[in-house]
Design a protein around this nucleic acid. Structure first.
Lengths: 194, 194
DNA sequence: GTCTATATGGCGATAGAC
DNA sequence: GTCTATCGCCATATAGAC
């Protein structure tokens, strides 16, 4: 693993934890056992380093869903599998999830466009296609957004949800969350097409 | 309006925009036309100022929903009204919404507990009660979470969603979002109880 | 309560040796 | 490619006059 890759990997974790202005080049240098000057040999400035780290983190996240779309099963089953995969990916890689949250919070238009078009568009299209199959008379964009929104909220708000009344440990289990969301959506489609 | 209140109000907006470490005391002082030393007369340090600002922002947000719960109408209608109110509050007060996102991202256990118990618990309980009425055989906590998750995602991810294919301007209209979510949920309940 | 002035230290970034 | 040393600036926070 090259120094540049080591720096990027550490930067992803630390930027995710502390945010852009919360992480100093000195802290990053300490984490990768290099001097600050060595980092500046690989990256022209802190902002460029941050952008490269984000790009690096988002690059091959889409691949995790390929097997879902390629599988030969019913639309209902595909939805169930997509939701399971989505929750698993987000729960397994918390650093990625936090970095994404930070990017959304920043909401820089140029970076949003890059993120959408470069990384997630193909996944979103496939999900819209699936939504159209399951509920043809509804707005596919709204529906695809709902699927992701349902799944994401459980992950994003886990730290808060556990302090609400009625919380149970199983509410943090991926299978339980996925099953609940899938049932909710499929029930809704059933009623609509009936 | 006292100086202290002026500082807190400005701090909410600026912390929401730039984050804790992204906002300097100098910038805040400039924004409220005071010296840095004057701010330190009212607050012992930056961290305390931040915590007080967050508390100040969250204080009376719950009141916006009182009329929803007090209204004398069907459970279905109550759900529709809650979703409308929720989306409206979040869209109207973007600073509040961003500050909340930042707090969740931070995910400090102690502050999560304070946030949950001190501010949102009563709302969450009322929503769980409503969920139980609408779908008695389902987990109320999971269902209440789903309602908020659906609504929140549309707001939080608006900056990203507009760059996905299939997006239409109406997807940013509160009534359209609320109608879509309400229909989705009520359809799901219908199927379940059938 | 508010100011000016200042202490102290960490910040991003660079120079130049090896 | 990595280091030590350093520049200039801005950060949080404080002292003391008004």
């Amino acid at each position: 693993m090259s120094s540049k890759e080591k720096i990027l990997s550490a930067a992803i974790v630390l930027f995710a934890q502390k945010g852009y202005s919360g992480l100093s080049m000195r802290q990053l240098a300490l984490a990768v056992n290099l001097s600050v000057a060595a980092i500046y040999h690989h990256f022209p400035d802190k902002n460029t380093l941050y952008l490269e780290a984000v790009r690096f983190a988002f690059l091959d996240k889409a691949q995790a869903f390929d097997q879902v779309w390629k599988s030969d099963c019913s639309a209902e089953e595909k939805l169930a599998r997509f939701i399971r995969s989505f929750i698993n990916v987000m729960l397994e890689d918390r650093d990625f999830h936090r970095l994404m949250q930070r990017e959304i919070l920043e909401a820089d238009p140029e970076r949003m466009q890059l993120l959408a078009q470069g990384v997630f568009t193909s996944q979103f299209c496939l999900l819209m296609q699936l939504a159209t199959e399951l509920a043809p008379e509804q707005d596919a964009h709204l529906l695809a957004t709902s699927v992701i929104g349902l799944a994401k909220y459980y992950i994003e708000y886990q730290p808060l949800l556990k302090y609400f009344p009625g919380w149970k440990p199983e509410h943090e289990m991926p299978e339980v969350i996925a099953a609940h969301i899938t049932t909710l959506l499929l029930n809704s489609f059933k009623a609509k097409t009936a």
